[in-house]
Design a protein around this nucleic acid. Structure first.
Length: 447
RNA sequence: GUCCCCAUCGUCUAGCCCGGCCCAGGACACCACCCUUUCACGGUGAGAACCGGGGUUCGAAUCCCCGUGGGGACGCCA
């Protein structure tokens, strides 16, 4: 058999959502798995609803996800143009063939396709044999002269030599229209593979563009890693059949195949996505982690909850310092979007003190005395390494017959205002002696 | 309403095609414990499912039928 050719055919009529991304992904995976060709085709026949903005979002989202196309807009190919709005003459020519064969008629200014009425049988690669009879003639050219989806979709699949149509199950019922057209053109049917739908996580129905967490762009802005989102999406409707979940994309490509795709709709679960993202974030190389953090600080999504001042300070801070703060936080934080709040105490003296954490720590023993002892010890301490600071605190605790926790807990509150944060010694080292001592002093004065 | 697809823990799923190894395995979430300077990671453990009813069979999560439930399509949207 000749080379496998698949296509992803979005229409730029709205934001790019998770369901579309997954369809694109499965097509891409199948092309890469088989050494075939992944075609991007823009279905922009609905002139009233298409926008250039939405078109660019499609390109950007696919690129961000790493789903590169072999043929299509921007890269060209032998079967272009790849935007339906530029293929009018091709559609005209094909319409002529249908007219010549007596398969069309006009009504109310629109062109109708005369169906055969025979049962349409498709041998779906995922669902098996599906039979459905198309019962009504349908419009293929609107009265305004623009061709309709069913018609252009089939004409393009024929002329672009598409061998496998991998698309959402919502198209399964449309397929009988499409096979009627294929037959009317005397063209062989492609292999169909109708993949299950992604259901919204709350409430009934399939996920749509307006649902919470539906937009690919949103994950990008929230600092998610594309490889994590892709990995998560791979597992929504496809399974490698053993217990593997987190896999490099090369491994998914190697193992992916149509028979491995499920038949049941899958509910989107943002918690599992978040977990996958964390797993990737923890092992991200430092350079990429810092870059991702900086991008997030520079352009947080609207409504992100973090004080503006420390965020601005972070951006104007010394690059090496910013890097150090972020890398100190990397092993502790589950998502990039936690970073501004998590690191705020590194970028401002005006950080809030968590009253609950303070009361808990300051309520037992004599924490003020411990803070004074800690401050005194830090006067002469070596701040050049975490290990040196650890030695200082350990020696102090040993000298006074106390546990290191007796110093660390109040110290953390005094220096960062919160009970949670990076390692205590890292916190001290990155903040530096002057700021640490000043903060302890201030805290003792206020307490 | 008509037609089409589907049905295993709360969620994603393995097992189903080729019935016995499954009083059903993994992951997320949740809970407990351990690790630990906080938090997070990690480790250990607990709870948690074969939609219902009929068949077929020595034997059914697995095969068949019917119900029920979920999803989708029925546009001069794509």
């Amino acid at each position: 058999m000749s080379q496998i050719r698949v296509r992803f055919a979005p229409s730029p009529t709205g934001f790019f959502h998770i369901g579309s991304a997954r369809t694109a992904l499965f097509n891409w995976l199948y092309a890469r798995h088989t050494g075939g060709v992944f075609v991007l085709r823009i279905e922009d026949t609905d002139q009233a609803r298409n926008t250039e903005t939405f078109l660019n979002i499609i390109y950007d989202s696919l690129t961000w996800l790493g789903l590169n196309w072999d043929e299509g807009p921007r890269v060209g190919g032998d079967f272009g143009p790849y935007r339906q709005s530029e293929r009018a003459s091709i559609y005209r020519e094909h319409l002529g063939r249908l007219q010549a064969a007596g398969r069309t008629y006009e009504k109310d200014g629109a062109v109708y396709f005369r169906i055969s009425g025979e049962p349409q049988v498709i041998d779906d690669a995922i669902r098996g044999r599906v039979e459905r009879t198309e019962e009504k003639d349908f419009v293929i050219v609107r009265s305004d002269g623009n061709p309709v989806f069913h018609f252009v979709n089939v004409v393009d699949d024929i002329t672009m030599r598409i061998t496998h149509v991998i698309r959402g199950e919502d198209h399964l019922s449309n397929t009988s229209k499409h096979t009627e057209l294929f037959k009317a053109f005397g063209a062989p049917l492609p292999v169909y593979a109708h993949i299950p739908l992604i259901l919204k996580q709350n409430g009934p129905g399939k996920m749509s563009k307006r649902d919470q967490g539906a937009l690919v762009e949103e994950y990008q802005r929230r600092g998610f890693l594309p490889e994590a989102l892709v990995n998560f999406l791979c597992l929504l409707g496809w399974s490698p059949k053993d217990d593997s979940e987190k896999m490099p994309i090369a491994e998914v490509i190697r193992r992916f195949d149509l028979p491995g795709i499920n038949q049941t709709n899958a509910r989107f679960d943002e918690k599992k996505l978040a977990h996958m993202n964390m797993a990737y974030l923890l092992e991200l190389p430092p350079e990429r982690y810092v870059k991702l953090a900086r991008e997030y600080f520079a352009r947080p999504p609207a409504g992100a909850s973090a004080a503006a001042a420390p965020r601005a300070n972070a951006l104007s801070a010394d690059e090496a310092y910013f890097r150090e703060v972020m890398l100190l936080s990397q092993p502790k934080v589950k998502a990039i979007e936690e970073l501004p709040a998590y690191t705020a105490c590194f970028f401002t003296e005006d950080f809030p003190i968590d009253p609950q954490a303070r009361d808990k720590v300051m309520g037992k023993g004599d924490p003020k005395a411990r803070l004074r002892e800690l401050a005194a010890a830090l006067q002469a301490a070596d701040f050049s390494s975490d290990a040196a600071l650890e030695g200082t605190v350990q020696a102090l605790a040993a000298k006074n017959g106390l546990g290191i926790g007796d110093y660390i807990h109040p110290g953390r509150i005094a220096v960062s205002g919160t009970g949670v944060g990076p390692t205590f010694y890292g916190l001290l080292r990155v903040l530096g002696r002057d700021r640490v001592l000043r903060r302890i002093e201030r805290f003792l004065g206020a307490a």
